[in-house]
Write a protein that binds this DNA or RNA. Structure first.
Length: 209
DNA sequence: CGACCGATCGTCT
DNA sequence: GACGATCGGTCGA
């Protein structure tokens, strides 16, 4: 039984709590007439204008980041390193640019389509491991930025799965060393032992503080 | 293993 | 004109 998350789920004040709650939720895309879905296994919270790791740090509201300043429940997708499209969920409400980066998912439906999109021949952990690979496999790109997450082509849902607290690992975020002291904040969450979780030694096994 | 490197381009200074 | 919220490959120990 699948239930789409409505906007009240996203429009809450605590982006860190939402990042944690998103573990076990399902992302469903219907793009180019092809349906794919996957379970979220790794997330990171980006905590608005006071978070040096956030694109919205210091109130930076540009064409690219404007979506984050809007209502929660929409997608923020941007191009990273000219190659990778990174998929975020906007939370909170107008004026407060919170977002959660989806860093890894575990494939559910449409695995053949994901293989097609990524040019892979066999399903292994690399298919949807890491934010760049997530978007590639699910068919998400910058044209989806600003779209609602409550209906196709981009939907988020819950299927009754509960991830127990002892199976959730917390760590600092990946790739944000430039954010100085904010790089150390415990804003990354992932499911213990899940093979799709990104990072290597010290980043997918334990408390990487 | 770990360190390093190239790809590739929209965005902001 | 510089620089990424990355990835996958290579090289050396």
């Amino acid at each position: 039984m699948i239930k789409t998350l409505d906007r009240s789920f996203y429009q809450r004040p605590d982006v860190v709590a939402i990042a944690r709650e998103l573990l076990g939720k399902v992302v469903i895309t219907t793009i180019d007439g092809k349906l794919t879905s996957a379970v979220i296994v790794e997330t990171e919270a980006y905590n608005g204008i006071t978070d040096k790791a956030s694109h919205a740090f210091g109130g930076r509201n540009t064409n690219r980041t404007a979506v984050m300043f809007g209502e929660g429940g929409r997608a923020y997708v941007y191009l990273c390193y000219g190659i990778h499209h990174l998929f975020n969920v906007v939370t909170n409400n107008v004026g407060t640019p919170h977002a959660v980066l989806i860093r890894a998912v575990e494939p559910l439906d449409g695995i053949d389509i994901m293989l097609e999109r990524t040019g892979k021949t066999v399903q292994d952990a690399s298919l949807t491991r890491g934010p760049g690979n997530v978007s590639k496999a699910l068919g998400i790109n910058t044209r989806h930025t600003g779209m609602l997450l409550t209906n196709p082509p981009l939907e988020m849902a819950e299927n009754g799965t509960i991830i127990s607290p002892e199976n959730i690992i917390v760590s600092k975020r990946i790739g944000v060393d430039y954010a100085a002291e904010d790089a150390l904040l415990p804003y990354r969450f992932f499911i213990k032992g899940n093979k799709y979780v990104s990072g290597s030694k010290g980043q997918n096994g334990g408390l990487g503080y």
